[in-house]
Nucleic acid binder design. Structure first.
Length: 641
DNA sequence: GTTTCGGTTCTTTTT
DNA sequence: GAACCGAAAC
């Protein structure tokens, strides 16, 4: 392979970096992924055993893309390399070594929906459920932040609830209770996976030595998005050989709300004094005009690593600014432009509309449907968190973890006349445990169930018992299939108006399970996958359609034409973010991410009013981010204002 | 005492 | 949509 020819000077330097810590500052569109993939190929060509390379990413998509590309580039020469998200690696190591820190390896992973439910029940149990007490979601974010940043909860809580009359003592008490309940249920949430993985490395010399020895080279993607725990863990993972290469862009740090701290990135050279730093600034993606807008936008932020995107492409069109009357007019504008682009030969799949929050896309979705333009939304609801998908997996979860109270109650509450109270009573009666694989447990349960539920349970019971009898522990799909046939299929029809659609989801879920060697592997994966990944799995055929996406979900992607809508004060930047410390800068970085997704054409849209449900209107100023861009860089277009 | 149903309100971003 | 609340139904 001729590395010199296939890479530019900047990339080549990073790819062929000598051993030791290195920091790659990769601005948007400068071939960050390419550099990482070639780095892997380079290492393998130098004779490094792929088995001793670790590649960490934040998203499943990034992990898959890099593994695929590295595989193609080296003609399969990287097989054995360990690559995946932080959470995946954590789960993998914990399943193997959890005993070292006093846990079983049969824990269940809570997704955010489960965590919310458990938190709610904790609030009820402590009788903190008054109107002014924070919502489960808020508390989970706070506790997650405390865990990920390794900061004391009381300090964080005090700042977080500064202006609210909330008893911090209760907030602390609740966290202890939540922790206790998680242990009882034998479950871990996302934050726990990272926390305990770190703890495993800190406390078990055996584990630490084992993996420090193994991982001769550690590569981390999007390092600016690491939190304290992750940075600490990476530090330990690479602790022996110290061949740590981190790649990222502080301008694109957009996850501080979940604990990401780009100071890990900024202070990397301080932490590792012999760091070699590489900068990638040559942008292959966008026209010079778009990069001018991007560079101007980020100027408003306090100085970080200095860098300027340098264009190599020719101009095509000026970026446009459209000030519109309302959301409907904005939708008409976007559609008119899409039609124009299509006439000139742009494929719909090369067009994206980006926005700050999912609900900003509502009018546009209606209008696109009306205009019969196909579109795909990267939806807010994840495939694996939809009610029917979770319902279908309750049986599996119970089989794998008899203490999984959430799964047990979820299953029972599907029965007629059986609500939360009754489900709880039965759970208590069974001694907070249901050994689904043992016939005695079923006898005990049947005695406790209300008469109306007994006959239904008798239908489901064989599904549970088949697990051992027919050795189905390696066939999660079969369990789901039988549960569906025995009970859930019918329940679906009685419960949901779009049962057919949901049944199709379940069919693809069953197909999806085929790739897993065990029920436990499948359940872990379910919790760690997002809908985007599921989409790619279940609908591989790339449909032609305009992409609608949040900016967060668009990170790392690119399109020929990009629209950014609802660029208004209070919406983008979102008013809730601006209230937080550093919120405004983060929103600006988010805007920077949006701009740098565009290859040829960029359309910025700002309506003047938003209609409410009751017919009233709210006026919105155009976003400060638009005002910060020198007017000569944008051409006014469309609209009447 | 519980469950169920219908209406209302509100949507930040994700592993 | 889905989470919450209050009232009707069991």
């Amino acid at each position: 392979m001729n590395f010199r020819e296939e890479l530019n000077d900047e990339q080549y330097a990073a790819v062929t970096a000598p051993d030791g810590p290195s920091l790659v500052i990769a601005a948007a569109g400068t071939g960050k992924t390419r550099t990482l993939v070639y780095r892997v190929a380079w290492l393998v060509e130098q004779g490094v055993d792929p088995n001793r390379i670790l590649l960490l990413t934040f998203t499943n998509k990034a992990a898959r893309e890099m593994l695929d590309r590295a595989h193609d580039l080296t003609g399969g020469g990287v097989s054995g390399m360990l690559g995946g998200t932080f959470h995946h690696l954590a789960n993998r190591l914990l399943r193997q070594h959890a005993r070292e820190i006093g846990f079983g390896n049969d824990y269940t992973i809570l997704d955010s929906d489960d965590a919310k439910k458990l938190m709610k029940s904790c609030i009820d149990e402590l009788e903190l459920d008054d109107k002014h007490f924070p919502k489960p979601q808020v508390l989970l974010s706070l506790y997650g932040l405390a865990s990920g940043s390794q900061k004391p909860l009381d300090d964080l809580a005090y700042t977080w609830f500064e202006d609210a009359p909330i008893d911090i003592g209760n907030v602390l008490k609740l966290r202890d209770h939540y922790e206790k309940r998680k242990k009882e249920l034998n479950v871990m949430d996302f934050d726990d996976l990272l926390l305990y993985a770190l703890k495993l490395f800190q406390t078990s010399e055996y584990v630490r030595n084992l993996y420090q020895e193994r991982f001769q080279y550690v590569l981390v993607d999007e390092y600016q998005d690491t939190n304290t725990i992750q940075a600490e863990w990476v530090h330990l993972l690479a602790g022996k050989h110290k061949n740590l290469m981190v790649v990222g862009d502080d301008f694109q740090s957009i996850y501080s709300w979940r604990g990401a701290d780009y100071h890990n990135f900024l202070s990397f050279p301080k932490r590792y004094p012999d760091t070699r730093t590489y900068k990638l600034e040559v942008n292959y993606r966008s026209t010079p005009e778009i990069l001018d807008v991007a560079n101007a936008c980020i100027k408003g932020n306090p100085l970080q690593f200095q860098k300027e995107l340098r264009a190599v492409r020719e101009s095509i069109a000026e970026p446009k600014l459209a000030l519109l009357r309302d959301g409907d007019e904005q939708a008409r504008y976007v559609i008119a432009k899409i039609e124009e682009l299509k006439r000139k030969g742009t494929k719909l799949s090369d067009i994206a509309v980006l926005y700050r929050s999912h609900f900003h896309a509502m009018e546009l979705q209606l209008a696109l449907t009306h205009a019969r333009f196909p579109y795909q939304v990267t939806s807010g609801i994840r495939f694996f968190e939809q009610a029917h998908v979770k319902d279908a997996c309750t049986v599996l979860r119970l089989l794998e973890n008899p203490a999984d109270e959430l799964a047990f109650k979820r299953l029972l509450e599907m029965f007629p006349k059986l609500g939360p109270k009754t489900a709880d009573k039965i759970w208590q009666k069974l001694g907070k445990r249901f050994e689904a694989r043992k016939p005695e447990a079923h006898q005990q349960l049947l005695a406790a169930l209300p008469a109306s539920a007994v006959s239904i349970w008798k239908e489901i019971q064989p599904v549970f018992l088949a697990y051992d009898a027919e050795s189905l522990s390696e066939d999660p799909g079969e369990i789901i299939y039988r549960f569906n046939k025995a009970f859930y299929g019918e329940y679906l029809i009685e419960t949901f108006d779009n049962a057919k659609h949901r049944q199709e989801d379940l069919d693809s879920l069953i197909d999806f399970t085929a790739r897993f060697e065990s029920c436990s592997a499948f359940l872990s994966e379910m919790a760690l996958l997002t809908n985007l990944d599921a989409e790619a799995e279940t609908a591989p055929a790339a449909l032609d359609g305009v992409r609608l996406s949040t900016v967060h979900q668009a990170k790392g992607l690119e399109w020929k034409a990009v629209f950014v809508i609802w660029l208004n004060e209070g919406l983008f930047p979102s008013s809730k973010s601006v209230e937080q410390v550093g919120g405004e800068s983060e929103e600006r970085r988010l805007f920077y991410v949006a701009i740098t997704r565009a290859e040829d054409q960029l359309f910025l849209c700002a309506p003047q009013v938003r209609r409410k449900h009751d017919g009233g209107v709210i006026f919105y100023e155009p976003s400060q981010f638009i005002r910060e861009i020198p007017p000569h860089l944008l051409k006014q277009d469309g609209g009447f204002f």
